[in-house]
Structure formats: C-alpha cells, structure tokens
Amino acid sequence: MTLESVARKDFRDALRSRWLLGLTLFFALLIGGSTALFYGVLLSGAGANSETLFGLTTAPGGLFNFSYAGMLGFVLALIALVTAHGSLIDERESGTIKLLLSLPNSRRDVVFGKLVGRTLVVIISMLVGFVVALFAMLFTGGQVMFVSYAGQVALSGLLATAFVSIGVWLSATSASQRQALFGTVGLYFIFAVLWSTVATGVPRLVNWVIEQLGLTALTAPQIVQMRLFIKYLNPLRAYETLVAELYGPAVAARLFKAGLGERLAIEATFSEALPFYFTGPFILAILLAWIVVPPLLGYRAFQKADL
C-alpha cells in the first residue's frame, strides 16, 4: 500500500521538522491552558461543568454571545490550512515530487497520502490539547459531561480534517508556493469573514430582484431560512452549530447567535418542524462533504498537471 508509505513519510517529515511538536504545544496551551484558566480561576468549585465553557454562553436577552467552539473553529481552520497548503506544491517546487513519483507511487497515493499524513499531524496535536483540557477540568473539580465532550472532540477532528482537505486541494491546484499562500489567506478570509456577509446579502439581493420584477416579496421567515442555509454551508458554522446541538435542542443550536428579530420570525416554524436541511444529520453531511469533495477536486487537477 503505497498511500500508507507516502503518509508515513510525510508524517515523519512533520516530526523531524518539529512542526508536530510545535502544534502540540500550541494546542496544549490553547485548549488545555484556557480550560485550566477558566475552571481554575474564573469559575472554580462546585457547579462548574464542562458545558459552562464548551457549550453555549449566551447572556440573557441575546446581548452577548460567546462560543468556545466558534473560537476553536477559527484556530483549527487556520492551523489546518497552514499545515496543508504546501503539501504538494512544496514538493513540486523543490523537485522532491520527482523522487516520489519515480517510485511506483500513483498520483492518487500521493494526494491522499498527503491528506492522511497532514490530517494526522493536526488531529494528534489537537487531541493532546483536549486531553490536557480534560485533566485540567478533573483536577479543578469541574464536572465533565463525557458524551458531549467526546462529541465535541470528534466534531473538532472533522473540522480540522475538512480544512486539511481544503488545504490539500489548494496545494494541488496551485502553480506556485506563492499562489498557494495567497490562496490560503484568501480562503481563510472567505470562510471566517466574508461568508456571513454573503449569507446576509444574498437574500436581500434576491428580495430586491423580486421586488423589481413586481412579484411578491419574500416573507421574513423565508429570508431568515435562506440566510441560515447559506451560513451553514460554511464548515466553520456547520461545526459550531453541531457542537451547540451537543448541549441543547437542535432548534436552539440552529438559531445560536441569531438576532432577536430573526428568532421571532422563525422560532415558531422551526419548533413545529425543523426542515430536513436544518437537521443535525444534514448539517453533518455538509461538514463531511467538505472533507470528501476538495481532495477529489485536487486529485483531478493534480492528475492532469505536468510536473
């Protein structure tokens, strides 16, 4: 199985470069450290459980929202993109890919071997962070809700994998390291910043066009649904709402961070029956699609490329 030997070689390279070590320390400090700080200093003693930090923190009246998952998602996405964006283009630019492909490795083995190797690097370092956090909670007397916690770790792994996939796609389709770097910055900006603007803007634009045509404008619930649908196509948001669902009902998870007006417009409809495209399994399928589709597109481009 040469996919395996490509993955193993790639992983060993990450070990040698101390990238894995650096990431492990980073996640231990970030996840473990923030947990220790939260339960050790801010909220010590009885009544503290893992939901307090990892679940949804919403102040009354929706004035203030904080989600640990949202923050962790941003960080994981960035780390995964940085880890994966050079996976293929670096080897192409240096010429090591010619050694790799002089041996009986297929291009498929190379693309998916890289995907496996880089995913392991991000996931292993992330897991260490979560394990440190677990111990931090146990030592400070916090109560750990193991099922939700395990679910959160698993979802975080899926999100990291999705962004490694996107990074590998980027690396496979780029013609230079510079292009891959710009692509990384651009994609991150799209997922982290631009997407919500688009999600808000598209329904408005559609509504404006409909009004120009003299047709019946969209209803408020329709506008909210359209915005939410676009929003949850973003793997970062899909991840966040899936984590929220670990700690509460699906409707609340889908409307997490929604404004008061939007809640009033849609909550009743959702509580009656959540449309299938807002159910947990559907959102999970979106997240999984981000894992599967980008490497296939990347493989297709890489398969055709002259080295």
């Binding site: 390279d13 470069s17 010429g95 090591t96 010619k98 050694l99 492909l101 002089s102 490795n105």
Partner: peptide, 21 residues
C-alpha cells in the same frame, strides 16, 4: 504508469532530496 515504474529505476532531472530524511 505505476506498472511501468514498478519495473523501472529512475534518476530524474531537476529533482531534490528530502532534506530531513
């Protein structure tokens, strides 16, 4: 190609070795 390369030894042009191996 994989079948070809299974029975072929190659010294390519413009290659580089893996620095850390």
């Amino acid at each position: 190609s994989v079948a070809v390369r299974r029975r072929t030894g190659v010294l390519p042009e413009g290659y580089d070795v893996y620095d850390r191996l």
